[in-house]
C-alpha cells in the first residue's frame, strides 16, 4: 500500500544553525490513525506545517499522495486532500455564519455555489450539527467551534486530517463528542496532543517527538489512570 504522506530525512529550524527537527522520517498510510506527543516547543506543529507546505524544509523530501512536493505550486494541488484543524478554532472560522464557513473550502475547489451549499449541509448533517448552520461563528461555545472547524475541512473531502491539540479548552462532554466523531471517521489522521488518554482512545499508534527526532516505541503503552474529582464516590462511569 502506498503511504498518503511520506517524509524522508526532513530537517528544519526557524533559526540558522539551530535545527528544530533533524532527519525526520514519517509515514502515514490510508486509514492509519497516529498520535504525536512531545514537549512544548518540540516542533510538533512545525512538523504539521511542513507536511502541508506552509513552510519549506532545509533538506529532505516530502511525498504526498505519491507526488513529490517541493514548491508552493505542488502543495496547492494537494492541500485540499489534507484537512488541517488548527489548535485555536478562532483562527479557522472566518465567515459570519457557520454554513458559509463550511462552504468556503468547496467553493475554493471550484464548485458552484449551489453544490458547495449542498456539500456544506451534508457535512453538517454528518457531524450532527445542522442546527448550527445559521449561527454566528463567534457566538459558538468552545466545543461547538471545534466541531465546526472540523466540518470546515471535512467538507473538502480530504483523504487525511491533521488535528493540532484538539482537546485544549474542551470540557469532558465536548471531549467525548470529539472522540466519538473521530472514531466514526473513515479517514487517516494525525493528532498532535498532550492528552494521553485522548490519544489512547482515538489513535492506533503513538509517536514521540523528542530531541529533534521522532521516536516510535511500540512497548510504550498508553493507559488510563486514576483521577480524583468531587462526588467521586457517587456511582458513575467514564467512557
Amino acid at each position: 500500500m502506498k503511504p498518503l504522506v511520506s517524509l524522508k530525512n526532513i530537517s528544519f529550524g526557524y533559526k540558522r544553525e539551530k535545527p528544530l527537527l533533524q532527519e525526520i522520517n514519517l509515514q502515514l498510510f490510508p486509514q492509519e490513525k497516529i498520535g504525536l506527543i512531545g514537549p512544548n516547543g518540540a516542533g510538533k506543529t512545525t512538523l504539521a506545517f511542513l507536511i502541508t507546505g506552509l513552510i519549506q524544509p532545509w533538506q529532505g523530501e516530502i511525498e504526498i499522495l505519491g507526488q513529490v512536493c517541493k514548491e508552493e505550486k505542488d502543495f496547492q494541488k494537494i492541500r485540499s486532500k489534507i484537512g488541517f484543524v488548527f489548535q485555536n478554532a478562532d483562527d479557522q472560522l472566518i465567515f459570519p455564519t457557520v454554513l458559509e464557513d463550511v462552504a468556503f473550502g468547496p467553493l475554493n475547489q471550484g464548485l458552484k455555489p449551489e453544490q458547495a451549499l449542498e456539500k456544506a449541509k451534508k457535512t453538517l448533517k454528518q457531524l450532527n450539527i445542522e442546527r448550527l448552520a445559521s449561527r454566528n461563528t463567534f457566538n459558538l461555545s468552545g466545543g461547538e467551534k471545534k466541531i465546526v472547524s472540523i466540518a470546515t475541512v471535512l467538507s473538502m473531502e480530504p483523504q487525511m486530517l491533521i488535528l493540532d491539540e484538539p482537546t485544549v479548552g474542551l470540557d469532558e462532554n465536548s471531549r467525548d463528542k470529539l472522540i466519538e466523531i473521530l472514531n466514526n471517521l473513515e479517514l487517516a489522521y494525525l493528532i498532535i496532543s498532550h492528552d494521553y488518554d485522548f490519544l489512547a482512545r482515538t489513535t492506533d499508534k503513538q509517536l514521540i517527538l523528542k530531541d529533534k527526532k521522532i521516536i516510535y516505541d511500540p512497548s510504550v503503552v498508553l493507559h488510563k489512570h486514576e483521577h480524583a474529582h468531587p462526588l467521586g464516590y457517587v456511582y458513575h462511569t467514564h467512557k
Binding site: 502541508t52 492541500r79 485540499s80 488548527f86 483562527d91 479557522q92 472566518i94 473550502g105 475541512v153 473538502m156
Partner: peptide, 10 residues
C-alpha cells in the same frame, strides 16, 4: 495564523 488556515483551505 488566519492566513495559513485560509491557504490550507485552498
Amino acid at each position: 495564523r488566519v492566513h495559513k488556515a485560509l491557504v490550507l483551505r485552498g
